[in-house]
Computed example of a mutant assay.
Amino acid sequence: MSDAILCRFEAARSIVRDAADLAMSMRPPSGGPTAKLKSAQDWLTEADGAVEALISARIDTLFPEDGFQGEEEGRTRTGRLRWVVDPIDGTSNYARGRNRWCVSLGLLDGDQPVAGIIQAPALGETYTAVRGHGAFLNGRPIRASAVTDTRSAMVEMGWSSRVPDGVFAEKAATILRLGAMPRSSGSGALALADVACGRLDGYLEIVINLWDVAAALVLLEEAGARVSPFLRDGGLEGGITLLAAAPGIAADLAVALEVPLD
């Protein structure tokens, strides 16, 4: 990996740390959601905009030639190297004062993920990865689960109002028929990070966007997980399906759920 990428990664670690501190300082108290409702279960807090603005401004100062894309403002700058941020992934949790949310920042070189940082400050966890340099949780190397039987697997499935109820129910039923234990915890980025470190054996989201996965894609690759071809199949342009899984059950999940693998 080039010195330019490694330099950006080190700078991004500091930027994400400051962004996470800002998000913590703005976190609503526990209770009913303190946020605006964009659509069913799709929340927007004041922190979403503030955190994205902080990251965008810092990157623009340090690397003005780089592209930038955020969940809230869209693609505001173009460049071969493109930063993609989800300022608060798991906003439904964040808006209620819960702990399972994160700041997610990924770096793409063209259409290839090359670095990613996912920081969950309320959990005290930071995931990091640079292509070719391994994947880490709080500085310790991580690997995907060694599970080989879906009957002993734990699989999470993300929910979206953009998915018809019947489709969601069908996929959930398929996971249950495989004997896997289902989960749903409200943060796509952290679910993917859990697959990378073996806390989950699989994660399916029928419609998910680039900002949700940009940081996690390199983390998953470096941790040895298998992932559906999200970027190749249209993830750069809009929301599509993503499956990430431990290598020992990835093929079984992909066939049952009718999702192609890499």
Rank of each mutant, 00 (worst) to 15 (best):
D149Q: 13
T150C: 14
T150Y: 01
R151L: 07
A153K: 04
W159N: 07
S160E: 07
S161I: 09
R162K: 14
R162L: 15
V163Q: 03
D165Y: 10
G166E: 12
G166I: 03
A172N: 06
I175Q: 04
L176A: 15
L176I: 13
G179N: 11
M181P: 00
S184N: 09
G186H: 00
S187C: 12
G188R: 13
L190R: 04
L190K: 03
L190I: 11
L190S: 07
D201E: 15
G202C: 03
G202P: 05
L204T: 12
E205S: 15
L210W: 07
A214H: 04
A215W: 04
A215I: 10
A216G: 11
L217K: 09
V218G: 04
L220Y: 01
L220P: 00
E221L: 06
A223F: 10
G224C: 12
R226D: 05
V227L: 05
V227M: 02
S228V: 04
P229R: 13
F230L: 08
L231C: 10
D233P: 01
G235A: 12
G238C: 07
G238L: 08
I240K: 11
I240E: 07
A245T: 05
G248A: 04
G248P: 00
I249D: 03
A250M: 03
A250P: 01
A250K: 05
A254E: 01
V255Y: 09
